[in-house]
């Protein structure tokens, strides 16, 4: 358990006027792993990433990237990190290629090296055809890919991805996930912020949940799912008359719970793992139940937050008392 920590933060505090963006956040990411930082808008995720990537100085606490302090050795830190912000940080007036070549030059790859690197990354991110167009003409998905390509120009060891898939459609999101997996396979360490438990579950080795500038949970995806409840299987039989039969089948494959009719004609049941879905499909087919909808969901961020804090992610600070008690239960 003494793996080398590439990203270490202890007690990070940052206030903007009266806004307490961070109130003592600890983060730890071992080499070659992905940390998912999960939290709603305004939880402090972006502030944490900006401190770790040397864009902001913390009011208190300290952080090291590959052993370099983000304040005292900021210049060294910048040599090993890549940052992909929540909003595309490329120059919209430049073409995709000009952007990547500019960053290559700024990263001392040399003129030919910068050109070669730009061509490789454009190819990898499927942007070669659009390379000569101004970035402002790109679609949302293309812009995200260019932004991510821009942060990989210098082959950074440590990559910060601030909500890399917010606003992307599901297929584009999966593409982005593939890229992140390739980066980790190649040895990079990734810190990824997200509002989706599904995304953190798909990519992260460990998940830190933050809310109102504090860490409220830190666990593996499995551990977190054990706390907040695992997946839900929902089924809509084609014939409403078969709802009772469907409910009976779902109860058999569930983790010991009764099926609920969550919407009219739609049944849902908590399940322990992915195999429940296959099993449900087989049993439904054997019983002659035709279904129009069948899906496996992870809890939404709201559900995660409700379980961890007793309130939804969008709520204000009105239920602090309840929050504290439940947090203690979770910690216990």
């Amino acid at each position: 358990m003494t793996a080398e920590l590439v990203i270490e933060a202890e007690g990070l505090v940052k206030h903007f006027g009266s806004t307490k963006a961070l109130q003592g956040v600890d983060l730890a990411v071992p080499r070659g792993t992905v940390l998912g930082v999960l939290g709603p808008n305004g939880a402090g995720k972006t502030t944490a990433v900006r401190i770790l990537s040397t864009l902001l100085t913390p009011d208190a606490g300290h952080a090291r990237i590959s052993g370099f302090d983000v304040v005292r050795d900021a210049e060294r830190v910048r040599q090993v990190i890549g940052l992909t912000g929540q909003y595309a940080s490329v120059d919209e007036d430049l073409t995709g290629r000009q952007n990547l070549e500019l960053f290559g030059t700024l990263l001392d790859l040399g003129r030919a090296g910068a050109r070669r690197r730009a061509a490789e990354l454009l190819e990898w991110f499927d942007l070669t055809d659009a390379a000569g167009r101004q970035a402002k003409t790109y679609s949302g998905g293309m812009r995200r890919r260019l932004d991510l390509a821009a942060s990989l120009v210098g082959s950074p060891d440590v990559i910060f991805l601030d909500e890399p898939t917010t606003g992307l459609d599901p297929a584009k999101r999966e593409d982005m996930w593939d890229v992140v997996r390739s980066l980790v396979t190649a040895g990079s360490t990734v810190l990824l912020t997200t509002q989706y438990l599904e995304e953190a579950d798909a990519l992260a080795d460990e998940i830190t949940v933050i809310d109102h500038g504090r860490v409220i949970a830190h666990d593996t995806p499995e551990g977190l799912k054990r706390v907040v409840g695992g997946q839900t299987l929902s089924v809509r039989p084609a014939d409403p008359a078969q709802l009772p039969l469907t409910a009976a089948i779902l109860a058999e494959v569930s983790a010991g719970a009764e099926a609920d009719e969550i919407r009219k004609g739609m049944l849902a049941v908590p399940v322990a793992d992915d195999t429940a879905m296959t099993e449900a499909v087989a049993r439904l087919a054997a019983a002659g139940v035709a279904v129009t909808e069948l899906a496996l969901h992870l809890p939404s961020l709201d559900e995660v937050f409700f379980t961890l804090t007793g309130r939804t992610a969008s709520d204000d600070d009105t239920t602090t008392t309840t929050t504290t008690t439940i947090k203690e239960e979770v910690a216990a």
Partner: peptide
Amino acid sequence: GIFDRFRSLP
């Protein structure tokens, strides 16, 4: 964001 990018580069 472009200036954030510049500031995050060496």
